[in-house]
Amino acid sequence: MSDVPTFILIVSGAATGLIGAMLGLGGGVFLVPLLALALGVPIRTAIAASLISVIATACASSTINLERGLVNMRLGMTLEVATTLGGLAGGLIAAALSQRQLFLTFGATLAVMGVVMAMRSGRRNVIADEAGVEPGRLGGRLQEGDRSYLYRIRRLPVALAASLVAGAISGLLGVGGGIVKVPVLNAFCGIPIRVAAATSAFMIGVTGAASAFLYFGRGDVALHLTAAVAVGALPGSLLGARLSQRVEARSLKIIMAVVLLLVGLRMALEAQ
């Protein structure tokens, strides 16, 4: 059992679940640094707890995103081919990298994604929904107020490559992988930010499960700590998914860019 009080663990899970669901990141990107840096939990235990918490966050927020019609299931399933393979590989090689290498990889990835997101925060990926325009099998339609838009997937190989990397990072660092998928899907592949975030969250549960079995099988899951964090993450993520609808898309991108840069720098500094 962890020395950290249960109440603190529940609040940590709730706070990171809320932010994670708002941004479609899963929350692990905040939970791992919080547990490992602020609460002194061993990094491997923190990663395993984060992975389970990320699954809880993703499943809970997906129920709301599905209800709203924001999830593109066909696109999600297609990209899950890459994320689950990456998740399985990441979970298997997690033991091979040193803690310093893990922190550096984590920090650099977040910082790069933050910059990409900030640079493309003003871009819109939607086309007015007019007669004769079709979104294709992996595209879809999006309702904003009384207006309907459609979007098409562009550069599918880029989306698949990003999903493979996201899966591997998820398995290695317990962060879900939304930090890679959401910016790439939005900035390079033509997917609107809300659909990218909702579809990413939909995938994260499956991606996390691919590597969570490995952590569970290795005995890295500290049951009490993990349960407390997950119990907090469930209501936090439900609230976060509801609040995300009220935040304007551009604000969502800028918040994400700032968060990615700050957490990335903090993790990179930790490796020194």
Partner: peptide, 16 residues
Amino acid sequence: LWWGVLLLILTPVVRV
């Protein structure tokens, strides 16, 4: 706790 964590991991598998 053990069953709760296991069920949580299995939930996305059931979804697939």
